[in-house]
Design a protein around this nucleic acid. Structure first.
Lengths: 369, 369
DNA sequence: CTGAAAGCGCTTACAG
DNA sequence: CTGAAAGCGCTTACAG
């Protein structure tokens, strides 16, 4: 019907009149669904309220300039017609989607879901939409999100963990608003929200030493990542302080998969290096070590001292429960998004001023391992 | 600069010429960032390629009607200028955001992340954007997502688990495209993708009976939910078949929290009802029971027969590992989104024809419990 | 095969 | 305090 009306009217005014006629007609005879599509514009509200579309727009945007009486009249009509603004139009007009994206490597690790939860909260607190996406190690998925930036669907992006590589980041940085979460890139002056990984690595190692461990293995994530590097620095420092020689071959990288972790640990043991304590990059890795010990595919004593990173609920449901460095995951997500939105809103501020590392506090929770 | 240009030119043509002049100027002197904002429209591409904006648009949309030579010329200019279409404009023009939303109760349970992963894949396979959001039991968050529907930012929605109540669903159903995932509402004719919960409940119970259990407790989720009801039906049926009396007080609801689960189990035991087998609504609940048994806050034997639902990785990292009904979570997410997009694309098809329950296969994995 | 023009539904400087 | 009008950057029926 809409379509037919359109062909039938070349003149704008005529068109509107027909529409109005149709609209009052439909109010009686058509279902809510069809009615909605026929009256969804600001123009219809304006007509009903006997004001211009400009005034309706002002009311919608809470412009204090409109006379209270006018405002109330318009508000009443808006409610009556159950009018909802079309954000597609608003976005185009304002050249802003009020949407940001956060990309995560995956969602299978509860580590990431906590970060996402904080991110979501920050977005809503600032009336932004947020699209949280997981890369799943597929470059084309990442490209999809970056494309949202390029096609104006998103205004900024936060990369969590190593969801972006250094080259791509550099390329994007001078064109888009970006915040990094938990991982930074040395030499790149970007905003990054993380914990003090060096200190945390130091503290974990120190705790194991306190318990009498002197052969401490370190199962890391990606060896190139800044968090890994920093934690290892802390690890080395604690060893040095205690006069324990540092052995690089007691460090092994592993992904968050059982087979990887098993190989990493067994690899160290296979070199003839005894292990009486372990630090892992994640709770998930620690849980896999426990699994391996139990099923005897990892040749470690039942009660090996182990400290993991993250502090997700996983560390509480294993048997034994895991001692862990608790990262403020929710806050990490919240703060990243908050910083990004600050950048977005604060266009005028010199970009350079706000960049840099933001460190959030962590703490250790001692459990059974 | 853009702003000044604008004030200086009231005539469209003059405006464009100034812009063009500025653009060739900036190509030499300004950074990529500023250059971008100055040349980002289809109009500029048209000018450079000596064609109309209509032709550029046709090329962009792969309209086969354009002459190959023209097409190549335009394509070259697009590449040269590094032009990216403004989706904000396209969306408004086409009155379609090509975006759908999936709402989940939370993301802390890996159960939901797997569903989300499948959903994401389905969206991308169909060139849709997807916004995955978690309610966290807050009605205002849910309203935010529903508002995306109302303001044209999203074209459809899938509700996972009990992220929506019956009343709201009924209200939304005749105005928007909706798919339910894992949970349906009796009496509401909506598309729902789930497993055969009754059969799964039957199978789990049957397995426990086969092992000699006759005092089987059932820790459920929300008692009103369709999946719970169906599983309990299957549970009853299996008991009946084995001639075991059904005791409603051996069923207790609990949220996915340790304290809730503990209370639920202890509540049953406290009534003087012995338990030699347990079925739980989720892996998470089962892991909590294991935790409770270990720390002796739940008075159950170490080796109680237990079967959980979901089949997430949680069931593998506990000690003992958990026997579980594996739901095809990824497929559940994928199929829900796929069905939704089918509805979106297939406007013409009678809505009623496609509605109904879609059942996906599950299976049981026997582990240590 | 291509272009001129209208229009998607908003916002906002300008004039009154 | 309010309205008329231009414009955000696209798409598409229509004419040629």
């Amino acid at each position: 019907m809409w379509y037919l009306l359109y062909i039938a009217s070349f003149c704008n005014r005529l068109h509107s009149e027909l529409l109005a006629a149709a609209s009052s007609f439909t109010a009686i005879t058509l279902s809510a669904k069809e009615d909605r599509s026929a009256m969804s514009s600001i123009k219809e509200v304006a007509k009903q309220a006997n004001v211009s579309v400009a005034t309706v727009s002002r009311v919608l945007n809470n412009d204090p300039v409109v006379k209270p009486a006018t405002k109330n009249k318009v508000l009443r009509v808006i409610k009556e017609m159950n009018y909802k603004p079309n954000m597609l139009a608003k976005n185009l007009r304002k050249q802003a989607s009020r949407t940001i994206v956060m990309v995560l490597p995956s969602m299978s690790n509860p580590y990431f879901s906590e970060i996402a939860r904080g991110a979501q909260a920050a977005a809503y607190d600032n009336a932004y939409n947020i699209i949280i996406g997981t890369i799943e190690s597929k470059r084309w998925i990442l490209d999809t999100y970056i494309n949202m930036l390029k096609t104006n669907l998103a205004e900024g992006i936060v990369f969590v963990s190593s969801s972006v590589n250094k080259e791509l980041l550099e390329e994007l940085m001078d064109e888009y608003k970006i915040v990094l979460c938990t991982e930074y890139y040395p030499g790149i002056n970007a905003t990054c929200v993380a914990i003090d990984n060096k200190r945390a690595g130091y503290e974990a190692t120190k705790e194991l030493i306190r318990r009498g461990c002197s052969h401490i293995a370190y199962i890391t994530g990606n060896r190139e990542s800044s968090s890994v590097t920093a934690r290892i620095e802390g690890y080395k420092e604690a060893l040095k302080e205690a006069g324990i020689p540092y052995r690089p071959d007691r460090i092994a990288g592993a992904k968050n998969r059982f087979d990887h972790v098993k190989e990493a640990v067994n690899g160290i043991i296979g070199q003839g290096l005894p292990i009486d304590g372990i630090i892992t990059h994640s709770d998930l890795q620690a849980s896999y070590i426990l699994k391996g010990i139990k099923e005897k595919s990892i040749a470690l004593p039942e009660r090996v001292g182990m400290i993991s990173f993250d502090g997700t609920f996983l560390a509480e449901i294993t048997n034994p429960t895991i001692t862990t460095i608790v990262q403020p995951l929710y806050d990490l997500g919240y703060t990243s998004v908050h910083k990004l939105i600050l950048k977005l809103v604060n266009e005028s501020a010199e970009a350079g001023e706000e960049e840099g590392l933001v460190l959030l506090p962590h703490h250790m929770v001692i459990r059974e391992t």
